[in-house]
Structures are given as C-alpha cells and as structure tokens.
Design a protein around this nucleic acid. Structure first.
Length: 862
RNA sequence: GGGCGCUUAGCUCAGCGGGAGAGCACUCGGCUUACACCCGAGCGGUCACUGGUUCGAUCCCAGUAGCGCCCACCA
C-alpha cells in the first residue's frame, strides 16, 4: 500500500478545498468509518446531536458545536473507542406549522382550517420531505462524522412509541394530569405555550388608576390592563392593611357594568405598591387566578382565542388593545380615572416563535408534575453523576431545576405527537399505551405534545427505548452532551428530568459541555432584525470547511461567547495553506514515514522530536478540559512557528548533508504526527495531506499519537534556543542597519557552540576573509559573540539607537531586581527559588549592561 | 427582586500571586527555488477605578463605576 513519497510530490502550491472536500466526505461515509458497532469489543464513546429543527439551516452556532462534537468523536475514534455520534432532527411543531401554513397559503391559497387535521398533517409530511432537512447536507459539508445509519427524527415510529410509552407511565404514576389553569396563550399561533416558550421584555405601557365604587366605600385600583376589568370579580387588599380593613366584606360597583363585586383580603397583595388595592380578574391573570381559587370567585372569560373581547356590551368585538383604549376613554368620561402614567415600563411576555404578545388565558390543558422529577434530576448533579463544563455554569442548572413549575405540555396544533388519551362520550378518559387499542366509540384528545417533550427523550429514545437494545445498553449514558448554554432550560434540564425517570435513575450524559454564543465581529448577538447574521455556508464556499472550523475553535473558550469575523476565517485558511505547503516541501524532499525511526538523531531533528512529543502530551491534557481554543493555539503555533519557521528552514540544510536520511525520516514523522493531531479539528486538509504523505488509507482510522517521552531532549532544546537567539539578534541588527536580506556579510563567531554553517546560511553570512575587519560586534544573551564586517558601511546612529534602547531595558531590569534584593522582607519571606531567580536575572542584567556599554564605546564617534 | 459573568495592545480575546501575551490591524524591509494565503524586523498596554491582604497584586478580598446574560406573577 505504501509507495515512496517522492513519486507523489505533485501537489499544486495552494490548497483548493472545494476540489477535495465533497469527495473525501463521500468516501468516509461510503467506507462506513462513522458507523458505530454495538458489538465491538472497544470501549464505547457516545454523543447524541442536539437535533436541529427540521426547518433549520446550518448557522454558526451549529458550526461551532458540531465542530466540537466532531473533534471529540474523531479523536475518540483514533484513540480506539467505538464511537457513536448519533444525528437526527426535531419535528419543531410550531415552526413547521408556520412554514407549512405559509407554504399552503402561497401554493394553494388556503389557510390551516381549510384542511382537516389529517390533510394538514399529510401536507406537513410532504413539506418535510421536500423542503425539510437541508441541514443534513450542510452537516456533511462541515465534515460531521455522524453515524448516518442511525439517523433519527423525533416523529419516527420508534420515537413516537417512546413518547407514548413515557406518557402513559407518567400518567399512570400521576405525574401527568389534566387541569384548568391560566396558561400562556399565543393569539396568533392559537396554542398554549410553556413558560419556557415565552420571552419577557420591558415595554412602555400604561398604568391607570381607576376608582371602583363611590364615596366612602370606594377604592382605587391600578392596572396596566384596563380592558380586563370587564372580567373582574373582586377587589383585593392585604388583610393587615388598616386603610381598607373596614371595606373588606363589602361590595363595590364595577364601573361600566351593572355588576357589584366583593372586596376581599388576600396575602398576595402588596400594600406598598400603588394604592394597595388590586382588581382581580381570575380568568386573565395568573395571580388573580390563584386569588380567585382561594376565594372561590367566579372566573368569567371575556376574550376569545384571538384576544377579541366577547363580554357583552359596547366593547364586544374589539381587539384587546382597541378595547383597552376604548375602556380607558369611557372610564375617563365617567370621571373614574384617578391617575394615568404613560409610558409605564413593565415586563410583557411574547411568543418566542412569533413575538405576539402572550395572553394569559384560563384553559384546560395537560401538565407534567415536575417536582418529583426535578428533585431526582437535581440530585443527579448534586451527586456529581453529571458534570457541567465549565463548572461555573452549574448554578444556572440548579436555578432552573430547583424552581420549575408544572410544565404545560399540550398544544393546540396538529403537527406533533398526539396526546394518547381517549375520552368516552361521558367524559371519562383513558391513556392508551403503544400496544393498546382504545375502546370503541371513544375519541382521542385533539392536542399534540410540546415539541420539547419528545426532545427530552432524545438520549434514549434514539437508541431504541423502551426496548433494551444493544445500543441503549452500550451507549447510554452518553459520554458528553455539547450544546449552547442558552438551551440549558429548554432542553438539558428536561432531558435530565426524563432520562433519570425513564432509565432507572441513570443520567443521560456524564458531562454537559456548554458552549457560548457566536456573535458578530463587534461582539453583538446575531439576529435577523439586526441584519448581522453570517451564513457559515458562504464562508465554507470561500475558504473551506476546515478554515471555518479552525477559526471557530480558535475562539472557543469554555462557556464564553465569541465574536467571529471573516478575517479570522481568512487566517485559518492561510494556516491550511501553510500546512499544505509544509507537506509539499516534505514530499518534494523525500520525507518518509517508511522504516523505523532512527534511535538517536542530532541537532534540529532531536529538538523537533522533543518538542513534538511535548506537544502531544499537552494536547491530550487540553482535550481533557475541553480547551479547544488552547488546543488550536498550541497546534497553530507549533506548526507555524516551530515546524515551518525553524525546523523546515534548518532541515533544508541537513537534507543534503550526511544525516539527510535521518532528517527525511524525522520530517515525515513530524508531519505525520502533526496531521494526526490536527485531524479532529480540520479533517479535510489533513486527510488529503496525510494520505499523500503516508500512502495509507485514511487518517480518519489512523491511531491517535502517543507521546514518546524518550524523545524528550533538553540539551537539543537548549541548543536550538541558543541558535534561535543568535539568529534573531543578528536579524534584528541587520534590519536596524537597513541591510538587504540578500546582502552577504562576512562574520566571525566565538563563544558559542551553535551550528555555524546553519546560522551562516539562515543569515546569509559569509566566512571571514583574509581582510576581515570587525566593524560591529554582537553579543547575545546566551553569551555568543558575532563579529560582522560591514566594511565601514555601518550605520552608526542606527546602531547607537538600537544599543541605547537595549541599554535602557537592561538598566531597568537591573534596577527592578536590585530593589527586590535590597528589600529585607523580600529576602527573608520569599521562597528561595524566587530569590535565586531574581539573583540570576540581576546578574544577567549587569552582564548585559556591561556588554552593551562596551559595544557603545566601540562605536566610532561621528 | 434574585443569580451569573465581564472590564488586559486599535479590534477580538488568552493569562490570573513573583519577568505583560496571541491573532488580526498598523509601520519598515524583502518575490531568500514549500508557501506573497509568504518571509524577516518593529511599533503598540499606569491590565476600569478606589481601598485592603501580602515581602510582592493584572491575578486574592471589599467597595465604586460601566457593560452583558439568565431567572422572577409586584397589579
């Protein structure tokens, strides 16, 4: 399978991602590299993908998270794990409804209610097959190594079965119940919503104070929702409020109506807010509902499902906002308005899907009793069975899980899992399990379940639960969940609730890796309304999937948001090109991975191997902490600064020398290991280069590098450090002197053991001739002396400026350290190692000052 | 009202008790036969402010100011 690298060294000088990415992915998929094997004897490693909406398209947040999951699973595969990365999509009940409704209105000119339920659902499936799931192709473009043979959809038969099974179990255990309560109602989507699906924002409204009743028996209430007064059935005051004690138990006339309503006392009322008296509208406000329940008040509803007034009278038929305006005007006319504050900023709930103002509505819905589930889910984290990365975000989990209220799970929609409860003509109900038949003549509940209900089962429903499949037994609990901290509540908490419940207390994941949000280049949240949304597909088109992935990983500090910017993607693309050309150089020069590594090597070869294995160790440590930004930074600098800028430059010299074969082997080794280390982050370019370099099948199935501590070579590292120091110092001198890089300068070395030939070549220095005149002398920090013959052409002012600057720095260094050593407290209390270091630095600074002063003195005076 | 976090080079961010760092941007010089998507050199910061702890604070503690996020039924 191997052939010599030199035969294949025909790469062009630039990497063109579009030429290779598609074909490589197709080959990986075809060869089944990403297919898990539940019967394997390898240790399992599993991740379930956060299922994107079937309506969705890949955005930068996906790109970030998918790259992390891909990197983790590719590395695990290389390390010898049996990897399952399970892909799939969510049916996204409300989102599909909006899209399908728009689609039907455009294509057939009809609205949702022009179809029967069955027709609409059929249309939705049709839409899904035709337009849904675009993201799956986009995931392939990004390089996601998911197991497509196990792709799932939340409305699959198997997952629907899981939904029905757990629903029945919860129902039978009295953890699901039906009750009439105030719910969040979206008057546009015409459905109930859970608390999590409501976004609150402060908005300018109005606070009007209205006098109820007349004379001494009157009371003033303040409200932001004057229109709901039509449904008032009481006025409440605090029981201890002396101002109103005498009124409790009496009645007042409700303005604009003929009704009289009682004044009641309830602990909920805050006497210090407003007038201390509050109107009570049990059918249109959650607090008022509770008060109404406590006092057994009537709960008349005054609006329909579209938030249009239904209460008889002049306001009937008005929209809630029109009604508010009209009612305040009418009250004003009646002289009942005591005060009006406008604008009055207060929090208003909005439908997270369509942004319509939520209407609290009294409604009969299905609920999950979360308290017992939440306690178990909280304990799982308290006991450390699930850990959060970064750990700082753990309190946020508890904030959620410890304060959950019952979860409203029924939705007045058609696309989704229909509630498996049937009603008899007499109104009895029965919950039907997956293998049961409802009694004849009974009818099924019309509602579907909240989309998040099925998502909450994802870690086990996708693996075949409730059946005890090999997958479920092997891959649950999953190794790690990677998701944004923004859906901790929506999703993570609920998976914990149901996972712990359904799987006998076993958590759905051992670690939850929470990523930050991807923001625009100035750190602003991306949103359609801001118009700053970047399409990752465009960047992939222009720079390649690897460049996108690498740029995202560069900014991926645990739990922190990151700003992205096209220039970073350009930089990442440049890195890929750099790698490409380094490998191209290696191939051109006969680098190889064939044959055993030489036991001992010298000079730059020894140094780079020492560094390479240190990097392997470090990368492994950083992966344990999910430090993607640091992993990327480390590999970026190792590859670019050390391998390309120094090692390859030095290798150019030795390739033609006596140890050329060693260098060819070492160069092959370095690139082989480096490409394997980089593969999880940038799979395409590394695959292309690695197969070219090694002639082997695929880096996807290559082994993860193992650090070889025997290659650690402190002496070699020190020697190269010295060489680098000498070279840098001379380069700086040349640059300050304005010498062209191409200009050759005679030079003489002393006091150093660096490889003179190497240094001369790198610096374009010539051997000293017979008439060598040392017009400049450089002494570097490592004690090497370099004399250069500029034949009188030395730029004295430039050199004086350079030396003066160095002198000032050295003097400052001397003073700082000297001061420390003169401080008795420091000398007596600081650790010995620190003191020794300061002494060394002082000595070095003094030597430096002497050296520079001498050089300055030696300069010809002008 | 609770909870969390941030403030370090022009920008985006690392660092977090003993010498201020990276990428990009910027300046200067270079087509040095892997790479101009490149090479070499350089400029750039009283680490938000005020106190405290410490021999020593960008780093720990307290407070101040500004910014951000999450949660919350004060009408």
């Amino acid at each position: 399978m191997t052939s010599t690298a030199a035969q294949r060294s025909d790469l062009p000088s630039q990497y063109v991602p579009a030429d290779v990415e598609g074909a490589l992915y197709a080959r990986w998929e075809e060869r089944g590299y990403f297919t898990a094997d539940p019967h394997s004897d390898k240790a399992p490693f599993s991740i379930v993908i956060p299922p994107p909406n079937v309506t969705g398209s890949l955005h930068l947040g996906h790109a970030l998270q998918h790259t992390m999951m891909d990197a983790l699973s590719r590395r695990a595969r290389m390390r010898g794990f049996d990897v399952l990365w399970l892909p799939g999509m969510d049916h996204a009940s409300i989102a599909v409804h909006s899209l399908v409704e728009r689609y039907l209105s455009e294509t057939e000119g009809k609205g949702r209610f022009d179809y029967t339920r069955e027709e609409f659902v059929a249309k939705a499936w049709e839409w899904k097959e035709r337009y849904g799931g675009q993201i799956l192709g986009q995931m392939r473009r990004l390089g996601d190594g998911v197991d497509w043979t196990r792709e799932r959809f939340t409305m699959d038969e198997g997952l629907s079965r899981a939904v029905q099974t757990i629903f029945k179990s919860l129902y039978d255990n009295d953890l699901i119940y039906r009750a009439e309560r105030i719910i969040n109602w979206c008057p546009r989507d015409l459905t109930a919503l859970s608390d999590a699906e409501v976004d609150h924002s402060d908005e300018p409204g109005e606070l009007v104070s209205i006098r109820y009743g007349d004379g001494a028996a009157s009371v003033v209430v303040a409200t932001t929702r004057a229109e709901t007064m039509l449904g008032d059935t009481a006025v409440a005051v605090h029981p201890d409020d002396e101002r109103y004690k005498h009124l409790v138990g009496t009645e007042v006339a409700l303005p604009l109506t003929n009704r009289r309503i009682p004044i009641i006392a309830d602990e909920h009322v805050d006497p210090s807010f407003g007038t201390g008296a509050v109107k009570v509208t049990p059918a249109h406000d959650p607090n008022d509902f509770e008060i109404g329940r406590r006092h057994d008040l009537p709960m008349p509803s005054i609006m329909d499902e579209r938030a249009v007034i239904t209460a008889p009278g002049p306001f009937k038929g008005l929209d809630r906002l029109e009604a508010r305006f009209a009612i305040v005007a009418a009250l004003r006319e009646d002289g009942r308005i005591v005060a009006e504050k406008r604008p009055y900023m207060h929090a208003v709930g909005h439908c997270s899907r369509c942004d319509t103002t939520i209407e609290p509505r009294l409604s009969l819905q299905w609920w999950v009793r979360v308290e017992p589930l939440a306690r178990a889910a909280g304990d799982a984290v308290r006991e450390g069975r699930t850990k959060f990365e970064p750990a700082e975000l753990t309190p946020r989990y508890f904030q959620w899980v410890d304060n959950l209220r019952d979860w409203c799970i029924s939705r007045q929609l058609w696309w989704g899992h229909r509630i498996p409860v049937w009603y008899s003509p007499d109104g009895d109900d029965i919950c039907i399990g997956p293998d049961e038949e409802p009694p004849a003549g009974w009818t099924q509940d019309e509602d579907v379940l909240d989309t998040w209900f099925s998502s909450a089962l994802w870690p086990f429903s996708t693996m075949g639960w409730p059946d005890q499949t090999p997958e479920l037994q092997r891959y649950y609990p999953t190794t790690v969940l990677v998701t944004g901290y923004d859906i901790l509540f929506f999703w993570v908490v609920r998976m914990m609730l149901f996972g712990v419940y359904a799987m006998d207390g076993e958590v759905p994941f051992k670690t939850v890796l929470l990523t930050g949000l991807v923001r625009d280049s100035s750190g602003k949240k991306m949103s359609k309304s801001r118009g700053n949304v970047v399409d990752p597909l465009l960047w992939m088109d222009n720079y390649g999937a690897d460049a996108l992935r690498l740029s995202l990983m560069q900014g991926a500090n645990p739990g922190a948001d990151q700003a992205v910017n096209e220039e970073w993607v350009v930089g990442a693309r440049n890195f890929c090109t750099k790698l490409w050309n380094a490998t191209r150089f290696a191939l051109k020069n006969g680098a190889t991975i064939d044959g055993p590594m030489p036991e001992t090597v010298a000079g730059a070869d020894a140094w780079i191997l020492s560094r390479l294995h240190a990097v392997v160790t470090e990368v492994d440590e950083l992966y344990e902490k999910y430090e993607f930004a640091k992993i990327t930074d480390l590999l970026y600098h190792f590859a670019w600064d050390e391998v390309c800028d120094w090692y390859i430059e030095l290798a150019k010299l030795s390739l033609s020398g006596p140890s050329g074969d060693d260098t060819r082997r070492v160069l092959g080794e370095v690139l082989d290991v480096l490409l394997r280390l980089l593969h999880p982050l940038i799979p395409f370019v590394t695959e292309r280069l690695w197969t070219e370099l090694t002639g082997r099948e695929s880096v996807v199935i290559a082994d993860w590098p193992i650090a070889d501590t025997a290659r650690a070579d402190a002496a070699a590292e020190q020697a190269i450090a010295q060489l680098q120091s000498v070279v840098s110092e001379v380069r700086r001198f040349r640059s300050d002197q304005g010498l062209k890089p191409s200009q050759k300068v005679p030079a003489r070395f002393s006091g150093t053991s660096v490889d003179e030939t190497a240094v001369r070549t790198l610096l374009r220095l010539e051997d000293p001739g017979a008439e060598f005149i040392p017009t400049a002398t450089l002494t570097t920090a490592v004690g090497a002396r370099v004399e250069l013959d500029l034949s009188g052409a030395i730029d004295v002012p430039a050199e004086r400026a350079r030396l003066t600057k160095d002198l000032a720095a050295a003097q400052k260094e001397r003073d700082v350290n000297n001061t420390k050593l003169l401080n008795d407290n420091f000398v007596s209390k600081a650790p010995e190692a620190v003191i020794a270091k300061v002494r060394d630095r002082l000595a070095a600074a003094e030597a430096e000052i002497e050296r520079i002063s001498a050089a300055l003195d030696a300069l010809p005076s002008t």
